[in-house]
Amino acid sequence: MAHAPFRAEVLTPDGALFAGEVEQVSTRTVAGEIGILARHSPLLGRLEPAELKLTEPGGDVTRYVQTGGYVQIAADGNVLLLAEEAYPVDEYSKSDAQARLDDAEERLGRAEAGTEAHRIATIAHRRAKALVALGDRL
């Protein structure tokens, strides 16, 4: 069944990745998987490394990988995704993700427990791990 379209935009530090009408946005925030349809209630959420699926009117699905960021649903139902990094799903590289995880592990090992550096490294490590795990679900 076709859903009402709404506007969605995916912005990265390298520019706009997508801007246009969609029927559905599926992604993941810290609270879990989220599917956004038209007139979703306003939201501001932190994104987790996950697959980002945009369903365009007509049923075409564009799939991206996001490494993190934020999602904002405005009062009018328009969706803005600010992704730290996002790229088409076929550009995902398991070895890259693994290299990041190794790097994050090494940094976590160097950080002293209880410090802010350790807290930051822990978050980076958790995200790097999620990005590696994502590879098996694509």
Binding site: P42, G45, Q72
Partner: peptide
Amino acid sequence: DGGGHKALVEYEPDPAEILAEL
């Protein structure tokens, strides 16, 4: 956007936490 309807906006995680990340 949404600022005028503060009470209606959902936050994941809560506003203070998301602010600390932003």
